[in-house]
Every structure is written in C-alpha cells, then in structure tokens.
C-alpha cells in the first residue's frame, strides 16, 4: 500500500492506505481524528466537511491520493481552545441537539465566513444548505452564523 504524507491541522501526518481511501476514513481510522463524521459517503449530507486550503470540502468523497500538498483542517484544528468565533457562537446559541452533524456545519460556516465575512441572509442559507441536520437545528445554526459574522 502506498504512503501519503500531508498536512493536517498544521502537522505533517503519514498514512499507509489504498489510494482510493477517502480522506474521511484516513482522518478517523488512521489518525484518530474522529471529530469529522461519516454521514452518507456520497457528499450529500455535509457531516464530513473539512477545509482543504481553507475551502469546505466533503472528505467522504475525496480520495487521499488527491490531497497532495493541500492543507487539511479538521474540527479539531479549527482553533486551539475551541474559541473560533463560529464555535463561540455555537456555544452561545446552544445550537446542537444530538450534535452529530455539527462539526460539519461548523466547518462549512467557518469556511463561508473566511471567504465572505459579511454574508447576507441568502448567502448564509445557500452556504449552509448542503449540510443536513435531522434534529432540525437550522434556526439556531442560522442565528449562530449571523452572530459569528457580526463578532468578527
């Protein structure tokens, strides 16, 4: 099996896996970074969202061989103390119910705000529309994204 070295949360990590192994399973099973969640495996639900050079991507559908030199950021690396404005807003607004999809939601929201610090309501809805929450926490997610944007 080939070996892949890549940057995760600022550290160089190596995994020996098949080339078609999705980044999601490398993170979860090889690097024990289990904050990134498995939801659907076909890039439909967003639970597995991570940043690739700052852009939100679905790690369940990204083979490890395609990562290359790009920097990967996971929920564990979003901030050192859990105090990224999006994380702070999530706590303040008491967003999660079961919480399973929330890492993906937070990664999508933080990528949006990095690119667009003052999104309109429509832009927030469009960006967040790819992330499913069966508990239906969308109202609080929306409020938290808005609050995080205002706090920056």
């Amino acid at each position: 099996m080939p070996s892949y070295s890549f940057l995760v949360n600022g550290e160089s990590r190596t995994a020996t896996v098949d080339a078609d192994t999705p980044l999601l399973w490398v993170l979860r099973d090889e690097l024990q970074l289990v904050g990134t969640k498995f939801g659907c495996g076909i890039a439909q639900c967003g639970a597995c969202t991570v940043h690739l050079d700052g852009v939100a991507v679905r790690s369940c559908s990204l083979p490890i061989s395609a990562v290359g030199e790009q920097k990967v950021t996971t929920i564990e690396g979003l901030s050192e103390e859990g105090d990224h404005p999006v994380q702070v807003a999530w706590k303040e607004h008491d967003v999660p119910q079961c919480g399973y999809c929330q890492a993906g939601q937070i990664m999508t929201a933080s990528a949006l705000l990095a690119k667009n610090p003052n999104p309109t309501e429509e832009e927030i809805k469009s960006a967040m529309n790819g992330n499913i929450c069966r508990c239906g926490t969308y109202l609080r997610i929306f409020d938290a994204v808005k609050a995080a944007a205002q706090s920056r």
Partner: peptide, 14 residues
C-alpha cells in the same frame, strides 16, 4: 445550555 456543547464543537469522541 447542553452540557456536551464544548465537546461537540471541538470534535471530541462522544
């Protein structure tokens, strides 16, 4: 607030 929030928003194994 949900007592697990700090762990949820930082991706701890739960």
């Amino acid at each position: 607030r949900n007592v697990d929030i700090p762990a949820i928003v930082t991706g701890k194994p739960l």
